[in-house]
Design a binder for these strands. Structure first.
Lengths: 252, 252
DNA sequence: CGAATAGTGTCTCTCAGACAATATTGC
DNA sequence: GCAATATTGTCTGAGAGACACTATTCG
């Protein structure tokens, strides 16, 4: 009791338990219809040679999100203005880093498809990996749990917010957006209902007034859209089957 | 492995910027139909004499949630098993604490109405304060932002999850649950539609088989329920007006 | 022309919101 | 009985999902 009191009244930083703080970047994109995450191969201990999320220590006067954005721009070349960035939470299990007590604050980033970036400091290799192909046991630290939380957050967020547009470029077609939803949710969507839904939700899409050029398969050119100014989708996009109890389909 | 040993030996913790880590507890309850938060008055610097969320430093070998639960049980007397606890995120602005760099990981807790607890260490006063009566400018640190995030999270969470039951006791009536929704959302709800909705959503409520005793105003006794085993509500409870663009009502 | 993709219209079913009507208590 | 609360039923309109149909491109 009194020791804790003395503890709390101490102003000397060295009297507080020392923590190191890192930020990690869970950079997601959709490439060729597949939800992919940027992973690096660590070339230093701990977990040397294993795959990990890009990240690093926060500087003592640096804001958490600024640290994440610095890593994002430096190690992946993604400009902050072209992406969606949000904090995922704090991961602080006492033994998640073998070196010392490290708390990590991962940031979730959605960006349009990009060329594979060049390795940064502390990494020898960097690449887009399809999320479904990631082997959780081979990720460093607790990054498997971080990635799982990120993907679940992304799936939920696409339902009620317009962030899916962050996976597209400035201008995109409804089909582009649909492929984002299909990749993140992992389910096929009816193009006709999807079109009616997205164009009918106020503030979601703003028509540019021009058409896209048809793809190699031919087909009618699609109208181009920009993201609107809505921050919340109403009515929300509904993820098929996400809310059914397991076994419901088998019983039907 | 020998290289890793060498690395660990040459590794110097002071080479990394030192952070202090705190947890804060945003303990919400519904008392007499009003959403209230537990606040303490600080009796030590910084912000001595101001209101704050209960919280404190994380020990070096302590899990973040364990630290929050320790504060919860120690400073408020709420047992973890009787409440809902979830992490709210990390708040880490470089100057949020005048002493040094402190990152806080607040935890959001929902608990049934309880007697006002006794002050803990570092606090001279502790009380339930209606959330609407909290003056943001008078809260210590960035706790106004933390509280705002907590309330918004609570409002959103009631829509798609059954956590509202955490504000009730073991057994409760549909009207008890409705008063929780009305207090958190700040809107009146139709008792008849609310009843049909909650009892009709699979896994939300399980009938106990007994009735409550009528209140002082008389009235028909209500059936008692327990929370069901659903983790997600489908269909979701809808918060009236939450998704309308501002000014919609004025224009109508 | 046919294949492929874009976009509209229509039907049905679920469900939210409004509210009438009935049930059960205390006084 | 009357007031108060609980619970059920009924109607209407919004909207999701299924899918027929039309439009526009390439080859």
């Amino acid at each position: 009791m009194s020791s804790e009191e003395a503890f709390l009244q101490q102003y000397d930083p060295t009297a507080f338990p020392p923590f190191a703080l890192t930020v990690d970047v869970v950079l997601l994109t959709v490439r060729e219809g597949v939800l992919s995450v940027l992973l690096v191969e660590r070339d230093t201990h701990p977990y040397r040679g294993q795959l990990a999320l890009p990240g690093g220590f926060v500087q003592v006067d640096e804001d958490l999100e600024a640290a994440a954005v610095r890593r994002l721009e430096h190690e992946t070349g993604v400009r902050r203005s072209a992406a969606h960035v949000e904090q995922l939470g704090a991961f602080g299990h006492p033994r998640r880093d073998p070196r010392m007590r490290v708390v990590s604050v991962p940031y979730l980033v959605f960006a349009p498809d990009l060329p594979a970036p060049t390795p940064g400091v502390g990494t020898s290799w960097v690449a887009w990996v399809p999320v479904r192909a990631v082997e959780p046991d081979r990720l460093a630290f607790d990054h498997a749990a971080v990635l799982a939380a990120a993907v679940e957050r992304a799936r939920a967020k696409l339902e009620y917010s317009p962030v899916a547009t962050a996976f597209c470029g400035e201008e995109f077609t409804v089909a582009d957006l649909r492929r984002v939803y299909e990749a993140v949710w992992g389910v096929p969507l009816d193009p006709r209902n999807f079109h009616r839904k997205t164009t009918g939700t106020p503030g979601f899409l703003v028509p540019v007034g021009r058409d896209s050029v048809p793809g190699p398969e031919g087909g009618r050119p699609a109208a181009l859209y920009r993201r609107g100014d809505a921050t919340l989708l109403h009515p929300a996009m509904l993820r098929p089957g996400a809310h059914e109890p397991a076994g419901q389909v088998a019983r039907a």
